[in-house]
Amino acid sequence: MNNNILIIDDEEAIIELMDIYLTNEGYNVYKAYNGKSGLEILSQNDIDLVVLDIMMPGIDGLQVCKIIREDNNIPIIMLSSKSQDIDKILGLGIGADDYMVKPFNPMELIARIKSQVRRYLYLNKSNNQNHSNNIITVKGLVINKNNHKVTLYDELINLTPTEYKILLLLASNLGTVFSTEEIFEKIWEEKYFESNNTVMVHIWRLREKIEGNPKEPKLIETVWGVGYKIED
């Protein structure tokens, strides 16, 4: 079964170009030229990934991302003509899984879409499995690998696929310190480059969701100069 990709962008030329590339790769493409239409398509169809432009009239991409994240964990790749780090941090900070700057190489976007869809499907393919060792419990946090649900003191925590993968990596290796580079290369399956703050942003988002005080984390600990860990 082909995966469904939703592209939300007010630039028709970009949508039509990506439609050609994605269709050639075997994806089903849904097209929306503004945020409102994109949200309507998402509510009516089984979408596996959203490619979302930030700068749009009406409801901009940041608002659309926030709305999607209220009850949906599908991967979101943001597009923007802004290349400043603060713009990338803002996009990732509200729930995007990846960020690309316009103009972009279509084949690079295809590669990132494939990576995100593969990761998303991997997280959801074992829903019907039932093995006791697929439950991880640490400090009130429960990670159920069978249905990919995370609870903290019995309260459901809504995580994006990327946040879940990072948390699962750390919780599955209690006491092990992972550097920013190691986390990036294991989760994104790409080469890490200096000044890449993607991991830092996702760790902060995770802490906001699972820590009582994100500035004084008790679960995801920082080992200064080394990386991050979760202790039993």
Rank of each mutant, 00 (worst) to 15 (best):
I5R: 05
L6P: 07
I7S: 06
I7Q: 05
D9Y: 15
D9R: 07
E11Y: 04
E12P: 10
D19I: 07
Y21K: 09
N24C: 02
N24K: 15
N24P: 07
G26R: 14
Y27F: 14
V29I: 11
Y30R: 03
N34S: 01
G38N: 06
G38Y: 08
E40H: 06
E40A: 03
Q44D: 11
N45G: 01
D46A: 02
D46R: 13
I47E: 00
V51K: 08
V51W: 12
D53T: 04
I54L: 03
I54Q: 03
M56G: 04
D60I: 12
Q63E: 14
I68V: 13
E70T: 05
D71H: 14
M78F: 08
S80W: 13
Q84K: 14
D87P: 14
G91K: 09
L92G: 01
I94R: 07
I94L: 04
A96K: 14
D97E: 12
D98M: 08
D98E: 11
Y99H: 04
P103F: 01
F104M: 04
E108T: 12
L109A: 00
A111L: 13
A111K: 14
R112K: 13
V117C: 02
V117Q: 03
L121Q: 13
Y122L: 05
N124T: 12
N124K: 14
K125T: 08
S126Y: 15
Q129N: 09
N133T: 12
N134L: 10
V142C: 04
N144V: 13
N144P: 15
N146T: 11
N147P: 06
L152N: 06
D154Y: 12
L156D: 03
L159W: 12
P161K: 02
T162V: 10
I166V: 09
L168I: 10
L170I: 09
T176D: 02
T180D: 08
E181T: 05
E182C: 01
F184V: 03
E185L: 03
S195P: 06
N196C: 05
N196V: 11
M200H: 08
M200L: 06
M200R: 15
H202F: 15
I203E: 07
K209D: 05
E211K: 10
N213Q: 08
L219A: 02
I220P: 12
T222G: 00
V223E: 10
Y228E: 07
I230Y: 10
D232E: 11
